[in-house]
């Protein structure tokens, strides 16, 4: 389990994260959403120990990430938004680096590369950015780590690859693995992320499961306009409106509408979820 308490971080005098407190449970695929510059990447790098917290603390199964202990690192894989080109075939890379993660499975790597229609025998420095990203995603999932942090993994992927990504994550994530995927392209990850964390400048606006969101907010897809909508938007074939769920009726959560609702009514939504 990951516990973050009163986490604070700043770049020089500029604060990025302030008093962040949350818990990430095992076996879930978290979606970390937020506008550009709210500190999604910073939070991920703090969680994997690439940066040190300025205030507060992070505890990952009893480890302090910044100490970068081998037992902590072997349970974790961090996929950054920009991935390095390597003068090596993808298979050779996987064999060469995979030996550092005890549970790494080369067969799984090749299977995921297959899902992505990526050639494992191709040299990584001759791959396009999308192909390179898919290679690293395959490697990350094949490491079978307890914690996998992915920063904007769908950036640079074409439309079929985004669907392949969802398939690979759903099929190849271990039951006890915790994935934390940061993105601002919420549609790419719809149906796979649960719970959802919405980060704002120096605050966590929401950290709730889809079931909780559905319990507390109602997403109305009908064309009928009602009063009291927190958010409404025209979508092809109708509209979507978000209301506080007073009737207890279940509805399908639209992450983009949720994101916009939360940003429009920060304090109200925080109040609804902290009840």
């Amino acid at each position: 389990m990951i516990s973050i308490e009163n986490l604070g971080f700043s770049y020089g005098e500029k604060p990025v994260l302030k008093n962040i407190t949350m818990t990430l449970e095992e076996g879930k695929i978290y979606g970390l959403l937020g506008e550009n510059g709210v500190g999604k990447t910073t939070l991920l790098t703090l969680l994997c120990g690439l940066k040190n917290v300025k205030t507060g603390s992070i505890d990952v199964d009893g480890h302090v990430p910044y100490k970068r202990e081998p037992s902590f690192l072997s349970d974790l894989y961090y996929l950054s938004d920009e991935v390095p080109e390597v003068n090596m075939k993808a298979t050779d890379y996987a064999k060469n680096y995979g030996k550092f993660w005890e549970k790494f499975d080369i067969t799984k790597f090749q299977e995921i590369m297959g899902i992505f229609e990526n050639d494992p025998e191709q040299k990584m420095n001759r791959m396009s950015f999308g192909q390179l990203k898919k290679t690293y995603i395959s490697f990350a999932l094949a490491c079978n780590c307890k914690y996998i942090f992915m920063d904007e993994p769908t950036n640079g992927l074409d439309i079929p690859s985004k669907a392949q990504f969802r398939k690979a994550v759903t099929k190849y994530t271990g039951e006890d693995s915790t994935l934390l995927i940061s993105t601002h392209q919420v549609r790419d990850l719809e149906n796979i992320i649960d719970p959802i964390i919405i980060l704002d400048r120096q605050d966590v606006l929401l950290n709730a499961s889809i079931a909780e969101i559905s319990e507390k907010l109602y997403f109305d897809y009908s064309n009928e306009r009602k009063d009291g909508a927190l958010y409404s938007e025209m979508i092809p074939g109708g509209s979507i409106q978000v209301y506080p769920n007073t009737s207890g009726e279940e509805s399908k959560v639209n992450i983009e509408a949720l994101f916009n609702t939360v940003h429009l009514h920060k304090e109200l939504v925080k109040g609804i979820f902290h009840k």
């Binding site: 790098t45 081998p70 690192l73 974790l76 894989y77 950054s80 390095p84 993660w101």
Partner: peptide, 18 residues
């Protein structure tokens, strides 16, 4: 000191002293 390649190096499961 490079953000991409340095991260790859630092995230390898080996201790600092190693």
């Amino acid at each position: 000191t490079d953000r991409r390649k340095g991260a790859q190096y630092l995230m390898l499961p080996a201790s600092h002293i190693e």
